[in-house]
């Protein structure tokens, strides 16, 4: 299959294959991305996160449909956790997006976290680039908002939607602990349920304590499954984008995102190099056993490792 040609002629198979190759760290894929890097940066990237059961996939489904009505092409990357024990995963987000799967202007890709160090974030970055090159106008990245790797993924988005839901109790605490800072738009889904008002109020209160710029993230009540007020949510996303552009924060974010990506790739390369080295060289083995025997401490051992790399 000629992937370059396929990408440019809109062949979904080529796009799908390239994403796999990126995910599998295929050298050829990185070559293609290097070559086509100039074509990236056109798509709007939107992160969607929130606790399990909040209805993220349904929200994504409805937003995508609204955008399709406006003639926009939509890419979706849905991330689910990989089992740390078996390396397998069940990726079930498509269940909520059944009608989108045959829409020619939509591309949905499920992805497992695969547990590799920094691997997911890299794979997700890669997938977004591929979908961007493939000509998607909007790209959604959907993750479960719990771990650091999810936060990393969401960082590459222009706008992050935090989906909350009434009646999950302690989740507000979890939001507060981790993801509050990165939410640009808050959606209270299933807002016909008891406790919706309270959830919204709590979010507003937390936002009061969390002022980081002149932009204040809005809190929007929706019922995604009935498509109620999802248009308002999209409006808020658009407004946030306007703010990003006007305030100059967009270029700052892009810069940060690129910086993060470079550092991620670098870190990953370093870790890999060290891993490879530790298999072949007695140098690292020696450092480890010296530390075990208390002849060295981990700080000194790490410093020696840095020195060793520098000198080469």
């Amino acid at each position: 299959m000629d992937i370059r040609a396929g990408l440019q002629s809109g062949d979904k198979r080529a796009c799908a294959r390239l994403i796999s190759m990126v995910e599998n760290e295929d050298e050829q894929a990185i070559g293609i991305l290097k070559e086509l890097y100039g074509l990236t940066g056109k798509a709007r990237v939107i992160g969607i996160t929130g606790p399990p059961g909040a209805g993220k996939s349904t929200v994504t489904d409805k937003l995508a449909k609204l955008l399709r009505q406006q003639g926009k092409k939509v890419g979706i990357v849905a991330v689910d956790p990989t089992s740390p024990f078996t390396g397998g995963a069940i990726l079930g987000d498509r269940v909520r997006m059944t009608d989108l799967s045959t829409d020619p202007g939509v591309f949905i890709r499920s992805m497992g976290t695969r547990g590799a160090l920094g691997g997911l974030s890299k794979a997700a970055h890669g997938a977004v680039k591929v979908l961007d090159i493939f000509g998607m106008d909007y790209i959604f990245i959907e993750t479960v908002g719990v771990g650091q790797s999810e936060v990393d993924i969401v960082r590459l988005a222009d706008t992050v939607i935090m989906v909350a839901v009434p009646g999950l109790g302690d989740d507000i605490q979890a939001i507060k602990a981790g993801i509050m800072e990165i939410g640009d738009v808050f959606a209270v889904n299933k807002s016909d349920r008891d406790g919706a008002e309270r959830t919204a109020t709590e979010l507003e209160m937390m936002l009061d304590f969390n002022i980081r710029s002149q932009y204040r993230p809005p809190v929007i009540n929706i019922i995604a499954k009935d498509n109620k007020d999802v248009d308002k949510l999209l409006e808020a996303v658009e407004k946030h984008y306007v703010y990003l552009v006007n305030s100059g924060e967009l270029s700052q974010r892009k810069k940060n995102s690129i910086k993060n990506e470079i550092i991620d790739i670098f870190k990953y390369a370093m870790v890999k190099a060290i891993e490879e080295k530790s298999q072949s060289s007695s140098f690292i083995e020696q450092l480890i056993s010296d530390t075990v025997d208390k002849r060295l401490d981990p700080y000194t051992a790490a410093a020696k490792l840095v020195e060793e790399f520098r000198s080469r």
Partner: peptide, 11 residues
């Protein structure tokens, strides 16, 4: 999944 595969479940 338990055999290490990535399963995309469609419903």
């Amino acid at each position: 999944r338990d055999a290490g595969m990535e399963v995309i479940y469609t419903g």
